[in-house]
Design a binder for these strands. Structure first.
Lengths: 314, 314
DNA sequence: CCACTAAATGAGCATATGCTCATAATGGGA
DNA sequence: TCCCATTATGAGCATATGCTCATTTAGTGG
């Protein structure tokens, strides 16, 4: 059973993790089995875990969370709500939400009926997609509803279309323009580009949109990622901005803001032609935006965590 | 976040496991979070794990196993072969095979096309089904190809139809007769019962059969479970018995034995009308039966573990 | 109401784990 | 070829974990 000569490095990590989690072996046993030092075994297992080779799921609907899901659906007329058990005050909400959301995503892609699935961007969606298992979704198309170019011209770091395509083997259609045009002429120019028109046309046919949500406080993703300046942020907030979905900024009633900056967002707004909008997000800062988005019926399904759900329902 | 008053006991176990695996908390932190002692936290996590609430999957195709799968397919003309990484000499083969097989089972039930899925019995299938996640397979039917009554009249312990139905929510059709009739008259009687005829008729339409495999040595399941006596075992072995699938005994060429005991097996033989037969099994004792079953084309797909695969291919 | 059995709990301890640091190996550029 | 920077490795140690055992609690039958 001991390997005569080493193979790939990742292979060994997977094998060590397998022996650890499935075989329930101690690190000493693994080391012996693979003919390596205990130290190395420990590192291999840790690495496999860190790299996401090891997927842990808890198969049990926690009663309190089910109840919260029911309340969310009723209160806001959602077609679907999923609430992940909280990880306590100090726990990152994303860590709790990701496995739950990843499972939902997998389900969506396992649907045999071919679909056009629109995606937003952001840290949340990135984290969820990293958690997904590979599924065969080659019959679907994934399309971005938002530009994938950062203000400095680099590829937007939190673009997710490529990653979701990797996991699902689906044909992918990024929107290869900036998130935000700098003025109206630039907006018109970008919008007129053939590949943009194609992508937008495809997005317009989306059967479902999967989106994150952004807050408009001092940690606004739009600000952190350099899409708007602090002055513009202040200006938007004065105009009533509370949150944004796919870069499109809305007010406390969940209505998209009529504002020159908002008008230059190149992407497609949700909801798209009555199609369902699945929003993933949680954490203290997302509470206000989520409440407003729910109020304005911008989203039709929600995946969040326990703490956030409680606050939203308060 | 700390619970004010306790809810269900299993709920708490799931929550503790969640905090442990997803939240990566130490037991002390979990204890504090849930307002219990560290001891209790430890036990809750262990319990959740033992009860199978925690599902661990390794997402990485180990190269050596892929190669073995390829060789198995080529050598025996299998439509599908899956090889789980071995757990070393001391590891239970079942422990390695179960997660792999469970995943395959889930895939089968996630197929949207309604199917009739026939099942054998045995320790192996039991273990695999315990590992399965719940899936929505209500559009399929599961039917047993073998009786579910033990010689003492009790329900056969390793019958799996109920359990698979639990996991998949599929309508289920057990075969409510003994595995083996005691003589030809009894055989004719049982076979004539209406509910048996119904079940057999359904099984005859199966789109796929999922089976274990039994050895005919001194640890033969048929002997251990009291379906045949030691004398009968010896007699069968003298007649060339090497293994059995669904109770139907075959020889070294994978041909069903023409023998009075074999003729009294009440179930349906695989393959059923050219339908695929997925066999799950591994371990030293299964090697000979598997080789012969493969030789006789009794099975069309195989899920096994690394060590067994190597031996089969030797 | 008591006594008995079985399960749940907490303390203490042996072991497994993962982190830090010092050292060795590896690899890329001059 | 040598040198430097980066990465991999192993030893030692602090901590987390899980097991055993003694004790308590809960549940059951007399």
């Amino acid at each position: 059973m001991s390997d005569d000569f080493d193979i790939s490095p990742e292979d060994l990590a997977a094998r060590a993790a397998w022996l650890s989690f499935v075989g329930e072996m101690t690190q000493d046993q693994i080391a012996q089995e693979l003919g390596i030092s205990r130290q190395r075994a420990q590192r291999l297992v840790a690495r496999a875990y860190a790299e996401g080779l090891v997927k842990v799921r808890i198969e049990h609907p926690v009663a309190q969370c089910l109840e919260l899901e029911r309340q969310l659906r009723n209160r806001f007329g959602l077609s679907k709500a999923r609430v992940a058990p909280g990880l306590g005050e100090r726990g990152e909400p994303l860590r709790a939400i990701s496995p739950y959301a990843a499972h939902e995503f997998e389900q969506i892609f396992q649907d045999p009926a071919a679909k056009i699935i629109a995606f937003g961007t952001g840290r949340t969606l990135r984290a969820v997609i990293d958690q997904m298992q590979s599924v065969d979704g080659g019959h679907h198309k994934v399309v971005s509803v938002i530009g994938n170019v950062a203000p400095d011209g680099s590829a937007s770091f939190y673009e997710v279309i490529m990653r979701i395509a990797d996991k699902t083997n689906a044909p992918h259609y990024p929107m290869a323009v900036p998130v935000l045009a700098r003025n109206d002429e630039e907006f018109a120019l970008y919008r007129s580009l053939p590949h943009v028109q194609n992508t937008i046309a495809l997005a317009d046919q989306a059967d479902v949109a999967i989106m994150g949500i952004g807050q408009m406080n001092e940690n606004a993703p739009l600000l952190l990622d350099g899409f708007i300046t602090r002055d513009e942020l202040d200006e938007l907030r004065k105009a009533g901005a509370v949150g944004e979905i796919g870069g499109h900024i809305f007010d406390q009633n969940g209505h998209y803001l009529d504002h020159r900056i908002n008008d230059r967002m190149l992407g497609v707004r949700v909801p798209i032609n009555e199609s369902p909008v699945l929003c993933v997000g949680g954490g203290e800062q997302k509470i206000a935006p989520l409440k407003c988005a729910l109020k304005g019926k911008l989203i039709t399904s929600l995946i969040t965590d326990e703490t956030t759900a409680i606050e939203i329902l308060r």
